[in-house]
């Protein structure tokens, strides 16, 4: 069995050159996430206006899966409404856990490159850490998120 299904070129590219990386001075909220098992740390900054995520950035250090997940996520969510963010999170969660897509799920677009994660149960946490951290930021919850 090969690891190419997990480490797809898109993922490696986002790992080496993460998009939307760095602090967001105009952020209206941020939250920190931590995976104590592997030492991954991520901070997500969001600028929310009304119902819309106007801008989203992240910083931190982690493995290829968690870094690429953060990078692709921030690309995918900029300009989305809160409801769209929730629907995409549910769809992404199902994808990486190898579960069927929820009814009426939105198209995953580039997020679909993480489908290989479902074959690596020990790596699901890496892929979803940044999403949970985003949830905390959107909830205005400043407490650190951990995967444990």
């Amino acid at each position: 069995m090969s690891t190419d299904d997990l480490y797809q070129e898109v993922i490696l590219d986002h790992y080496r050159a993460p998009r939307n990386f760095g602090a967001l001075p105009s952020a209206t909220a941020h939250a920190e996430g931590h995976n104590p098992l592997c030492g991954d740390r991520v901070t997500v900054y969001v600028q929310v206006e009304g119902d819309q995520v106007r801008a989203i950035r992240f910083e931190g250090s982690g493995c290829a899966i968690s870094t690429a997940s953060a990078s692709v996520m921030t690309d995918a969510l900029s300009g989305r409404s809160r409801a769209e963010v929730q629907a995409l999170f549910a769809a992404f969660h199902a994808l990486v856990r190898g579960e069927p897509q929820p009814a009426g799920a939105p198209p995953l677009g580039k997020l679909a490159v993480f489908s290989g994660v479902s074959d690596y149960p020990t790596r699901v946490k890496c892929a979803v850490l940044v999403w949970h951290t985003l949830q905390a930021a959107l909830a205005g919850d400043q407490q650190a998120v951990t995967t444990e």
């Binding site: 080496r16 592997c38 991954d40 493995c63 899966i65 790596r123």
Partner: peptide, 14 residues
């Protein structure tokens, strides 16, 4: 260099 230990572990495991 340039690879997180967690990714090393996964690739070795395979």
């Amino acid at each position: 260099e340039g690879v997180h230990p967690h990714d090393i572990g996964t690739i070795l495991d395979r």
